[in-house]
């Protein structure tokens, strides 16, 4: 299993402020599969992404990415695992203001302490083309629409050939049409690049693209339902 979440709990805060953000959550996502986690605000969706990406350490349980147990790693090792095997796609796209679309992708090579060579440039150009932004390669975030920025975010996440994609509310800042476009693209990239994608959303309309859908509420994840009708919404 590419991404395996095994009985994970996360308690945030101290004393009276203690909140159980995740309560004994288990989930598995295979390569090439898009798993959607649904739930209202504060249900624990972002906490789930945070522990899967190693941004927070779970209070209990285990998370493995391609068999490597993330929960036993130190912070800098988690950062290493993140840059090598995890692609993050944030809500509001979260691009770096000073960088062009092309540079957003090349930054990933730099973070991996590699000067972008020709193959990295080729890959970045190909990814931008795949998300339909070849003509926007030289544009900075403020020169792009919300949908375009989100598509740059997807291309950036795929730049390091990750095995896991973690996607946070990709449609929250987009209108319905652009939201469908972005999730459709995400589903396609998940299949084509063979990554295990975990997407949290509160947008029901995005569910038809998911291979499995799980509901989360008050930190408790219901057993996921497997869907057969992916991509035909």
């Amino acid at each position: 299993m590419t991404l395996a979440i095994d009985s994970v709990s996360l308690v945030l805060g101290d004393g009276d402020q203690r909140v159980t953000a995740l309560n004994d959550v288990s989930l598995a996502v295979k390569a090439g599969e898009l798993c959607a986690v649904m739930g209202p605000s504060g249900a624990g969706k972002s906490s789930l992404l945070a522990v899967c990406g190693g941004l927070l350490k779970p209070t209990a349980g285990r998370i493995t990415i391609e068999g490597e147990d993330m929960t036993t790693l130190k912070e800098n090792e988690r950062a290493r695992l993140r840059r090598e095997r995890v692609g993050f796609i944030f809500q509001q796209s979260n691009l770096v203001a000073a960088l062009t679309a092309m540079d957003q992708l090349l930054l990933m090579s730099h973070i991996n302490a590699r000067k972008p060579d020709r193959s990295a440039r080729n890959r970045a150009a190909r990814l931008l083309e795949e998300v339909g932004l070849k003509h926007r390669a030289g544009h900075r975030p403020h020169q792009m629409s919300g949908g375009e920025r989100q598509r740059v975010g997807i291309a950036r996440a795929l730049m390091t050939e990750p095995s896991v994609l973690l996607v946070d509310e990709p449609t929250s800042m987009l209108d319905h049409g652009r939201g469908r476009e972005v999730v459709g693209l995400l589903a396609k990239q998940t299949r084509e690049h063979g990554v295990a994608t975990l997407m949290v959303t509160h947008d029901q309309a995005m569910l038809p693209w998911a291979d499995q859908v799980a509901e989360i509420e008050d930190g408790v994840l219901a057993a996921p339902a497997v869907q057969q009708s992916r991509g035909r919404a």
Binding site: N76, A79, R80, R82, R83, L107, M108, I111
Partner: peptide, 15 residues
């Protein structure tokens, strides 16, 4: 915000 983002993408503090 940007530094947090780049760290989330996997950059080390040293970088």
């Amino acid at each position: 915000g940007e530094i947090g983002l780049i760290k989330a993408l996997g950059a080390s503090t040293g970088y």
